[in-house]
Amino acid sequence: MKIPCPLCGARDSREFSYLGHAGLLDRPAPDAGDAAWDDYLHNRDNPAGVTEDLWSHDYGCAAWVVVTRNTATHGILSSRLAKDGAA
């Protein structure tokens, strides 16, 4: 499997490590309340379709990358740098 790094181009998946859903980028404010934090920490959608994940390009440019993929087709649709924020 290859993952497209926005800086390095298509690279072998072994160069990356996986963190989780890209929703982790939307961290609630410290005083957002228990419900928001519970949701942030524990609740994940499980879509049959397009979703976004966070990958770290450990063996390459060391950037955090948001990869958009389709869980139904296994297709990788696009990628962008996590530091550039939400889509």
């Binding site: 390095c8 690279r11 072998d12 160069e15 450990d58 063996y59 390459g60 440019c61 060391a62």
Partner: peptide, 10 residues
């Protein structure tokens, strides 16, 4: 120039 995996080393 590429930062990359070389024999499982960064």
């Amino acid at each position: 120039c590429a930062r990359c995996d070389i024999a499982h080393m960064q």
